[in-house]
Design a protein around this nucleic acid. Sequence first.
DNA 1: CATGAATGAGAATTCATTCAT
DNA 2: CATGAATGAATTCTCATTCAT
Lengths: 234, 234, 234, 234
Amino acid sequence: MPSKVRKVSKEAVPARSARLTRGRAAPRKGAKEKWAERRAARREAILAAALDEFAERGFEGARLDDVARRAGIAKGTIYLYFADKETLFQELIRSALSPFVATIEAARSIDLPLRVVCDRLAGAFAREVLGTRRKDIVRLMISEGRRFPKIAKFYYEEVPKRAFAAVRALVRKGIERGEIVDDTLEKFPQLIISPALVAVVWDGLFDKYEPLDAEALLRAHFTLLFKAIERRTP
Amino acid sequence: MPSKVRKVSKEAVPARSARLTRGRAAPRKGAKEKWAERRAARREAILAAALDEFAERGFEGARLDDVARRAGIAKGTIYLYFADKETLFQELIRSALSPFVATIEAARSIDLPLRVVCDRLAGAFAREVLGTRRKDIVRLMISEGRRFPKIAKFYYEEVPKRAFAAVRALVRKGIERGEIVDDTLEKFPQLIISPALVAVVWDGLFDKYEPLDAEALLRAHFTLLFKAIERRTP
Amino acid sequence: MPSKVRKVSKEAVPARSARLTRGRAAPRKGAKEKWAERRAARREAILAAALDEFAERGFEGARLDDVARRAGIAKGTIYLYFADKETLFQELIRSALSPFVATIEAARSIDLPLRVVCDRLAGAFAREVLGTRRKDIVRLMISEGRRFPKIAKFYYEEVPKRAFAAVRALVRKGIERGEIVDDTLEKFPQLIISPALVAVVWDGLFDKYEPLDAEALLRAHFTLLFKAIERRTP
Amino acid sequence: MPSKVRKVSKEAVPARSARLTRGRAAPRKGAKEKWAERRAARREAILAAALDEFAERGFEGARLDDVARRAGIAKGTIYLYFADKETLFQELIRSALSPFVATIEAARSIDLPLRVVCDRLAGAFAREVLGTRRKDIVRLMISEGRRFPKIAKFYYEEVPKRAFAAVRALVRKGIERGEIVDDTLEKFPQLIISPALVAVVWDGLFDKYEPLDAEALLRAHFTLLFKAIERRTP
DNA sequence: CATGAATGAGAATTCATTCAT
DNA sequence: CATGAATGAATTCTCATTCAT
């Protein structure tokens, strides 16, 4: 994947900052801010269009022409926001991760029984990932990750590593509180989210042949799981 | 990586001579058979090379030029065996399915406790899928399935559908025998294989950052699972 | 033969600027118009180059690479103007038809003796077809028409059908006026143009071995023809 | 058209000779003769198949694979009879010319009124050219001749030149005999055959849109022509 | 900043020709 | 002689990227 010599895109202000900025007490927005907002909005539009196209066609299959058309801009404009196709792809993955991870880590500090926390996470996952384009990001990661080791690494650091750290902390707390008696999940935190992965993959491939109620699947999963690990009241 | 060594098999005999030969005192192996063998071997070589390339680069990213080089043949030769790139891809998936599915269904007729059958399947999966190129097929299916609805459908019919039917049969038998008391797995057979999917995906993306002992994962999974569903002896 | 000189026309102005400009004190020529002109010029250049190549090598034999080189543009540029090779070919034929047909039909309304009209048509044909690249179009039609039934049909409707309708009208008028006494040409209008076809074919194939004075041929043809069909003054 | 270094095809005995040979008093044909016949037959089969394919698709468009299939032989076999595709094409034209030309020249020595001879030739042309695959040869010549100057030259020498020499001789004889009074046809012998060319072209391109009775066309042509050139009996 | 025409490297596919059997 | 698998040059078409306006 030889990265040819080329202009490095002048990174625009990320959308989130833009949104955060909006709230400020700035009655007649300065021209500069207006500009930044406009830039940010355009960036978002490109990313949204890119997600559609990448999700539909994969990295190689997607055409920047289509991304541009979908975003309602000219093809060349993309290059004012992203250095090249690969960068666009990576930014896409990146931009979609932060909020996702945030939700996961928030669970860490909730002070409720593990079982309840898990059910809430199941709901959150169904709502915020499976119910949105975010699931396409996960799928894209699965599909194209191998060809982008850098981004796979980044993703690893940002998603599973942090999520699993949170899971481990939760499990430890559950054991200390006497809620559960089994530490398997500390060793294999994957076991807690594996049906979620199945749900994402199934949704992309087989849903039209046999629909899957993802939330029910996750709930059934937790029911079984907790039957296995909860302290048995005699 | 491209193996330049070209097999110059000289054992081929043209069909017509073969036909003429047929009347004679049967040689060790009919020339026709040898010929067919050669053809089959070449087909296999192309499929193997294709698997490498597709797994590495995805469908769009793989170049038939590289497939040919890897198979030690000329570019044009591929077209003597497969109509086009897409067909090659589909045949690749297809060709890897039959043996896979067979293994899955064999479990149906094993007359042992469910727990034992599951452990065996875990081992078989680790050995025959994760330990071979077959895992790449699964990954390819996940990655590219969306763009090949026809093949996704085929895959659905051949793998999950049949596998889940087998799982359901096993579960029912387990219940009837009084081995287990829970029918969740009948409703969501996905729950039995979800860690296997995680293992495949993890292996492709994150293994270099954090190796995963897939077999241990599967075993832990089954341990928990059976804790949850087995009849509890008081 | 490839003319490497590349027209680096710098007169183009992007559409948006043009739009902004529109309100101003109208410049010599709207940028938009200039732009359209440039596009049209390029299209013409491609068609001209294509005619050269197709005429020289036939449809299959012509390489778009050469067409591009001859037009002084890049290979890919052709595809900005024509969907594919076949479309380019068809547009080529089409584009050359309108003026040709116009000339033919104009004869219909000329109010002169048939003999005079015919002589004029002979001259026009020699000048406007045989003397230009238009003869190559006719030859291409003859050569490749069979493989492009759609375009053959179109050509039939636009050229021979209309031309023959005009001829029939002229002949009828000639009979009514008492100029001629024979209606064979109404039944076989082909007889009026057949030497023209010979001239086109001869020019393409045998002219270097034995030059043919096409106009003289046509005039001789009409001389004989009118000897046969004119009212004989005793 | 670079002719690469390659084996020169060992020219087989032409079909006609073969056929002529058959009549001989050779009771048990010698093995050699049998062989030659076989070779000749195969050569003919290839040429026939080639005519079909070339006529249908043009020189570049025709595939030797199809020629072989149509001839019922293997692709490689063609190369045992013809050096390459171009040679095959040229031989095809050549092989079809001799009988054609022969017919034309025979007319020279017929001792009948010119008018009668012409009518006979019209019939012969309709029957032996338009009614057979020979018309495809003419069409091929028109279509591809430009790209094969050598064969165009050959064709010129063999067909129009000889045919026109014959026509001129006939005309001269007609004048000497007092049958006709006009020597235009001596100068432009093309005028005698031009409707025939129209018939060939029309047949290939427009016949399905508007059928043309070629023989009637030719007869009408001669009727007009002779009205123009015959001595007028007052 | 934005545009979109132009570029040209690159990929899939075809097919004339060769050659081992 | 005949075969047909194999070859690889050649060709069409695509699309990421550049750049003049």
